[in-house]
Write a protein that binds this DNA or RNA. Structure first.
Lengths: 217, 217
DNA sequence: TAACGGACCTGGTTA
DNA sequence: ATAACCAGGTCCGTT
């Protein structure tokens, strides 16, 4: 079993997130992984429609064209990225990730996140006026959110956040059919011990003391 | 209240059609045409969506897999029958026929009739709550419909219930959904008596003996 | 251009 | 509790 610690510098969030970092799969603990800074891409204060039953987040065109399109096929044209699926790791850590279909709706001339978005809204109880925040660390993408009016402090992008440079796959160009289950599964339990978020991968054979720690939560 | 055999010969319909047993459209009276019994495949009480602008009829999976798929490519897999076109003769006779595209929508895991369906809806003035009925006689397919609540008896009381010498297959009447909502036609109760499946339309005022028979099941 | 058809998506309900 | 089904909805290409 793997156990990985993640520190974060991020300010407090209501949801209490510790900024998690997924372990590099290598497990070579002390590897010479260069640590990549997580940099802020963009925020959006979500509208009622974004969190309503339309099941989509309108991505402001500027943000889409500046931060997302360049990631797809080297910035290929709109038509070139039908059904792109972006995977965003939970900014709080825990190893969870969200996959959103990203596409362009010609009818409204806007970029949207569709499939997968409403799951995030539900899970994080996102409400109109809250802010979603997208970050990037190398090729890895992160998503997080904060409550409306949640502190000025929190809104500051993380000053530094170290993550392993090992890059898991990020973008899938989907002929898609997979549906359902995919990314929903939390990939391992997560526990905060001593102020540090720990992810338990392959939680089959936990040491007893850890099991106890988990039960206590 | 009405009581009707489930498989065929629905007796009179408002539209004047006998769902009827009309055999092959012979004409060639004396020929050695074997008369193939028209056997019932399945019914569906159509939903508002089925007759609305979606231009499609959702075919309940059981029906599709039991009655339609086996006809396509010898029961080949779903993927094998993209865009099959099925031709259904008008159950009332007259030589008219309807062609429907039959396909599988992977995203919702459902079977549908698409192209051609709305023409049928228009022509027959199909409305939510009405029932479409699919039959087969050998390789020939038939489609018919009846008005909601058209307790078969209402228009022309069947003097007697014709019982075919050979009871067609299971004749399951509708494991269909009972959406909690709205004005959907009350699904007739269904009961097997004397080895025959009977549908009870308008089960308000059952004769006592039938009520007893039902309770016994 | 409006309408149609095809594919996709999702939540409520049910098995 | 989970998974399957499907009614009702979306966008978009074609006609």
């Amino acid at each position: 079993m793997a156990l990985t610690a993640a520190w974060e510098s991020r300010g407090a969030e209501q949801e209490g997130g510790g900024g998690g970092v997924e372990p590099s799969r290598s497990g070579k603990g002390g590897n010479g992984e260069e640590r990549i800074k997580r940099e802020h891409m963009f925020d959006k204060v979500v509208t009622p429609s974004d969190v309503g039953k339309l099941n989509r987040l309108v991505v402001p065109k500027q943000f889409a064209e500046r931060h997302i399109l360049p990631r797809l096929l080297g910035g290929a044209a709109r038509a070139a990225c039908p059904g792109a699926v972006l995977r965003f790791e939970d900014g709080r850590g825990g190893g969870r990730a969200w996959a959103f279909r990203f596409s362009y709706w010609g009818s409204s001339q806007s970029y949207v996140m569709t499939k997968g978005w409403s799951a995030f809204v539900r899970d994080r109880h996102l409400a109109a006026g809250d802010t979603v925040s997208f970050c990037r660390a190398g090729a890895r993408l992160f998503i997080d959110c904060r409550r409306r009016g949640a502190g000025i402090v929190a809104s500051a992008p993380p000053t530094r956040l170290l993550v392993p440079a090992v890059v898991p796959q990020v973008v899938t160009l989907m002929p898609q059919r997979s549906t359902s289950s995919d990314e929903r599964a939390p990939r391992g339990r997560c526990v905060r011990l001593f102020g540090v978020d720990l992810e338990l991968a392959g939680a089959e054979t936990l040491p007893l003391d850890l099991q106890l720690a988990l039960m206590r939560r």
